[in-house]
């Protein structure tokens, strides 16, 4: 099987890789780039645990083929810290107790980040609509909504 050359930016790094044409972005991030923050919880696009932001859009990386992101700018949870400062969402998730087992957390934060990037002051209802793209089994979502609200006030 032929591999393909793919170039994209992930967090602050530009990377060029030879990938399988049928490789998912989730596999590339986790297996080739050791960015294991994005998780595989269902592998079928039903849960959002693998969400990363591609050119400003939140994407289920388990449904994206790596060749599709050639030339794209990708942000993963590992790339949220700026100059050693946590992103307001990361701070707020900690302070509001929005994290329990943590397996959905990366995807949840990245979904919320894409929201705050396109909508600086979302309403509570908008936040709920957005994070209804992701499953959390532990928290009942209340503290996640509160964290996104708090982060929106800080950005």
């Amino acid at each position: 099987m032929k591999t393909m050359k793919v170039t994209f930016q992930v967090n602050s790094d530009k990377v060029t890789l030879q990938v399988k044409p049928y490789e998912t972005l989730l596999e590339t991030l986790r297996e080739r780039l050791a960015l294991t923050g994005a998780k595989e919880a269902c592998g079928m696009g039903s849960c959002g645990a693998c969400t990363v932001v591609v050119d400003g859009i939140p994407m289920r990386s388990c449904l994206v083929l790596t060749p599709e992101v050639n030339g794209a700018v990708i942000t993963t949870v590992e790339g949220l810290k700026q100059d050693d400062r946590l992103h307001p969402l990361q701070e707020a998730f900690m302070e509001k107790g929005a994290v329990q087992c943590g397996f959905c957390t990366s995807g949840m934060i990245m979904t919320a980040k894409a929201l705050l990037d396109r909508n600086k002051k979302p309403t509570k209802k908008e936040i709920i609509t957005t994070i209804s793209s992701n499953i959390c089994r532990c928290t009942g979502y209340k503290k996640i909504v509160e964290a996104v609200e708090a982060a929106a006030k800080r950005t």
Binding site: G45, T51, I57, P58, M59, L63, T130, S133, N134
Partner: peptide, 8 residues
């Protein structure tokens, strides 16, 4: 579906 999948 959900908002994220509507965007894709």
């Amino acid at each position: 579906s959900c908002e994220t999948l509507q965007m894709r």
